[in-house]
């Protein structure tokens, strides 16, 4: 097990190198340059400014040289400075947006799991019942509704017409004058709509996986054996079937680790939440190379760790794979 772990960890080094090199080349080859974005179509700018900026950003050097110096800094955990007009360190820009993004994502994953695991189990054990059908249609409606559309409808109804929930942002005006508990409640109130909308869309996937895994598991031989032993239905379902049915869910959870920091630009745009998705999107649109690279590296690292965790979890839960 330890060898497996060490081997996988060592594998991550060439992987990271490959990923960063590919990303670096791809984003630099994509049309458009950060300097264009800052100088273009501004009647007051001369062409020489662009050359000046290009030199400041090292964009006039060969691509591999740029990559080398970028990598050199990265090894010292320096992500460089943003090419946008604020010239701030990339690490700082990312760090200030991480908490809210991770917070919202954890909340919605928790909500999704809380809702979809019971739905999945119940609709599997009562296959083709009214409950099964109703939840099927319900979770699919959640999945099938374009999220920004749903978000705006809810904002209009709950925020404007009924006035019961805040519409956007994560804090009210005057948040800083509230007591600590009230501050928490205030933020929580702001998070209800975003978390609900993102969870509503995600329940379908999870609960369906849960249901189909459960359906498969309850028909396995060992479940039949357990039943034959005379175990109660509850014990069969919850002690034996559930554990195995949760297996693929581990894979899915592992896959969502990078999503934790990824954020969704659409959500963050609609709800005016300053998160990672918007930061990355704006970075790509502005061709802010250091920022894009920084986020891709962090994302890639977390993805690899997430995959590793998923595999580990799998191995722990299913002894057959451990030796593979």
């Amino acid at each position: 097990m330890l060898r497996f772990l060490i081997r996988r960890l060592l594998m991550m080094i060439p992987l990271m190198l490959g990923i960063t090199l590919i990303s670096f080349v791809v984003i630099h080859l994509a049309p458009g340059e950060p300097t264009d974005m800052q100088t273009q179509l501004n009647p007051e700018t001369g062409v020489e400014l662009r050359e000046r900026l290009r030199a400041q950003y090292d964009l006039d050097k060969p691509l591999l040289v740029q990559y080398g110096s970028w990598l050199g800094r990265l090894v010292q955990l320096d992500f460089g400075k943003s090419f946008s007009q604020d010239h701030r360190p990339v690490g700082e820009k990312v760090l200030e947006r991480l908490p809210i993004t991770i917070g919202i994502n954890l909340l919605s994953i928790a909500v999704i799991l809380l809702v979809s695991v019971p739905i999945g189990i119940l609709s599997a054990t009562k296959q083709n019942s009214g409950f099964d059908r109703l939840t099927t249609v319900f979770v699919f409606i959640g999945f099938a509704t374009p999220s920004f559309w749903l978000a705006l409808l809810l904002m209009d109804v709950l925020g404007v017409r009924l006035g019961v929930l805040p519409i956007s942002g994560i804090k009210s005006m005057g948040h800083e004058y509230l007591g600590p508990l009230e501050q928490w409640l205030d933020t929580l109130r702001h998070l209800i709509l975003p978390v609900f909308v993102s969870a509503f869309g995600g329940v379908a996937g999870f609960s369906r996986y849960m249901r189909s895994n459960m359906l498969e598991v309850v028909r396995q031989d060992y479940i039949l054996t357990a039943r034959a032993k005379g175990l109660g239905e509850r014990a069969v379902i919850y002690r034996h079937a559930l554990r195995n049915a949760l297996l693929p869910v581990i894979t899915i959870l592992g896959l969502s680790v990078p999503g934790l920091i990824g954020g969704s630009v659409i959500f963050e745009t609609i709800f005016a939440i300053p998160g990672m998705g918007k930061l990355f999107y704006d970075g790509v649109m502005m061709r802010d190379y250091p920022l894009i690279m920084g986020i891709l590296v962090i994302g890639a690292f977390l993805t690899l760790v997430g995959n590793l965790l998923a595999d580990l979890g799998y191995a722990l839960a299913d002894p057959r794979i451990r030796n593979a």
């Binding site: 705006l152 904002m155 209009d156 925020g159 404007v160 519409i167 956007s168 942002g169 963050e268 745009t269 609609i270 709800f271 005016a272 300053p274 918007k278």
Partner: peptide, 11 residues
């Protein structure tokens, strides 16, 4: 800062 104009109008 509200990046979406529909949200801004609702706000």
């Amino acid at each position: 800062i509200i990046p979406d104009e529909s949200t801004m109008f609702l706000e």
